[in-house]
């Protein structure tokens, strides 16, 4: 029994049917971690991208260092740091929040590169035309650059959304009850790992396909020329 649901171990099929609602609980946690982690990554990524592009090296170099560190060290190490080291400094976060923050941190580094690439892909002629028209740099950024960067940024972001979802099982090591962890517990208790793990694999496949399809739709729906703000 888990989360108040009994399982039926008569055969594989009955087991599958009876543990589906339990796995759904895990799935819900997986989705929550994905969304929260990604939201953190989107905001932090924007901050990182802005810092990395800062004119002062005093700002841009440390930002690049942090970004490099976040990308080039394994998620698991960052997670352990947040989970085991931070409490030594009196910062104690619930496991779920710690996991979401770890995901958000690592992906903020990836997304900062997505933002940067999207912004840099806006042709130089656009900046020059804006300058020739005497538009202020901030106006140029918000009215000319960002609207044209969005259609380049969104599809790449979508791919990272799928990728972050596939990284959520790492959080199981710090006791987060996401889908894989739930499946493992079921396996531990029923001595049947095949069924729950296969189901998690299948559910992931469905999630990924749906998400990828969504990204493709979004990509197609975005006007290639840019999104006029307001």
């Amino acid at each position: 029994m888990l989360f108040g649901f009994e399982w039926d171990t008569t055969n594989g099929w009955t087991l599958a049917v009876s543990i589906l609602p339990i796995l759904m609980r895990g799935l819900w946690v997986t989705l929550q971690a994905t969304v929260l982690g990604f939201a953190i990554a989107m905001v932090l990524g924007l901050v990182l991208a802005a810092l990395k592009a800062a004119p002062s090296r005093l700002v841009s170099w440390p930002a690049r260092g942090v970004s490099e560190f976040l990308r080039d060290t394994p998620l698991l190490i960052q997670l352990f740091f947040l989970y085991y080291v931070l409490p030594e400094f009196g910062i104690i976060l619930p496991a779920f929040l710690t996991g979401a923050v770890a995901l958000g941190l690592q992906y903020s580094a990836y997304l900062s590169e997505v933002y940067r690439a999207g912004i840099e892909a806006v042709p130089r002629g656009q900046h020059e035309a804006a300058r020739a028209l005497n538009l202020a740099p901030r106006r140029t950024f918000s009215r000319i650059v960002v609207p044209q960067a969005i259609p380049r940024i969104v599809p790449a972001m979508g791919n990272y959304l799928v990728s972050i979802m596939k990284d959520v099982p790492v959080l199981s090591v710090v006791t987060v009850l996401e889908m894989l962890n739930v499946a493992k517990i079921i396996g531990d208790r029923t001595f049947n790992y095949l069924v729950p793990l296969s189901m998690v694999g299948g559910l992931y496949l469905i999630l990924t396909l749906v998400a990828a399809q969504g990204v493709r739709r979004l990509d197609r729906a975005l006007p290639k020329t840019g999104i006029p703000l307001k």
């Binding site: 002629g125 020059e128 020739a132 028209l133 538009l135 202020a136 044209q148 020329t225 999104i227 006029p228």
Partner: peptide
């Protein structure tokens, strides 16, 4: 000064009208 570029450099996400009115309004 004003400048006309070899590659036009119109703002692709704005209508023709917006292309022309943007700077007169903003600047």
């Amino acid at each position: 000064l004003g400048m006309v570029f070899q590659s036009f450099n119109l703002f692709p996400h704005m209508t023709v009208l917006r292309n022309i009115t943007e700077a007169p309004v903003q600047v």
